[in-house]
Design a protein around this nucleic acid. Structure first.
Lengths: 230, 230
DNA sequence: GGAGTAACCGGACTATAGTCCGTATCGCTA
DNA sequence: TAGCGATACGGACTATAGTCCGGTTACTCC
């Protein structure tokens, strides 16, 4: 019931930390320890029995942690999968942001786009079940994940750039079915197309495709689609 | 324990029925009655409270039917949704198979394709939640449903036809990124593209698109994509 | 170094999808 | 219309995702 000056000092400290560090590490030691435990246990169990065969209870038990802790930390099954993918994801993202061409900066946009599709497909095929879980275990999860926004933005920018580079002085080729609009249009069209391309790279979709074709064939078909989008 | 000649007469009767009728109606009277009850109850509840707010238990209770009956009849939640969509779906399918152009036969393939995309989008927007449930309530459900196969085949055929019509004598325009293969290739490429187009027409994807654009804009973007696929 | 507080912990609890199986019903045949 | 096998019924049962909250613990500030 007493009201000292406690509360404020605590919150201002938090803010300073946020300003000091780039990332927000307001996580207590035990919390961090348990996060590690959970991720390790989940990775092990998933690898051992397959993602779909492992219940959240089993993860909690293996991590020697309560269910509440598991869910508070990761929200839901999709969140746990996303967290596990995080590392590998960052790898790919780093290669895109600052790695060598053609995936990284330096190459023409169309080449970078092709490189991205190939690289992302490889990443996807390497973790298909996990990505599938992260995209579908919770309704709409896919489009909420930060990673999706990243991929989308990347594709959208490359698409827009590749297009403007493709037709340097020759203005807009023919009449096409294009609508007459402001010139800021390219971005929005590219935005939609980026979503469409990523839809073809969705785990569920790719899984279905693999049922009737080979990975090689799939890749070349995807690249062909990219070509027509440029 | 006695073995009369019973078993065989029963199964052969079944076979005759199958040959006689086009559809297999081996459904007992009480089963048919309960199917009706369930579909009616589900339609009412879904309309009243929203698809996602209604549990399977609630449906069974409202239909005055046991849970076992509900699940035996429709398999799972996705199956129930698919059954509810069946009627409206058939309507669209009928219009495609034997309705007036441009949706039905008689119009050029490219026009039919555009008409299909518009019509399907309208259908989808009219039942977004239900379609979403039918596509995602069970993993991989979307690609198993008979309806998906129908849409896919339709799009694939139109796509292939539109392409061959688009370049009558002018052979394959430029080198593109196309691979050198047998001439049966058009069909497989069209198969992939049909999947890709339908991926952009998936309920989850469309729902996400609607969060950042209007239905009109969405339609025109889809049609633009179709244009580039031809 | 001691007290206070926010953050965290764990597991019991709820809600819901889907399964199982003993019992009741249907529809055919004699 | 009585008998009988196939089919369907229904609700108890299991499994699992996700929530809640009383009790505990780690950090901060004096």
């Amino acid at each position: 019931m007493e009201e000292h000056n406690g509360p404020q000092s605590a919150s201002s400290t938090r803010e300073l930390r946020l300003l000091a560090h780039g990332a927000p590490p307001p996580e207590r030691a035990d919390a961090a320890r348990n996060r590690r435990r959970i991720l390790d246990a989940a990775a092990r169990l998933f690898a051992e029995h397959g993602v779909d065969e492992v219940s959240m209870d089993a993860v909690a038990r293996a991590a020697e942690v309560g269910k509440g802790t598991l869910f508070r930390r990761f929200g839901d099954r999709a969140g746990l999968a996303a967290a596990l993918l995080d590392e590998r994801e960052r790898e790919l993202q780093a290669a895109i942001l600052s790695g060598p061409p053609p995936l990284g900066p330096g190459a023409p946009a169309d080449a970078r786009l092709r490189a991205f599709v190939s690289a992302y497909l490889r990443y996807l095929l390497g973790h298909l079940d996990l990505v599938h879980t992260s995209e579908t275990a919770s309704p709409g999860a896919r489009y909420r994940i930060g990673a999706y926004r990243f991929w989308h933005r990347h594709v959208q920018l490359l698409l827009a750039e590749a297009r403007s580079a493709g037709a340097p002085g020759a203005s807009r080729t023919e009449g096409d079915a294009s609508r007459a609009e402001g010139e800021g249009d390219g971005a929005r069209g590219a935005g939609f197309d980026a979503h469409a391309l990523l839809a073809s790279l969705g785990a569920e979709h790719v899984r279905a495709m693999l049922a009737e074709t080979t990975p090689e064939r799939l890749e070349s078909d995807l690249l062909s689609l990219v070509e027509r989008m440029i």
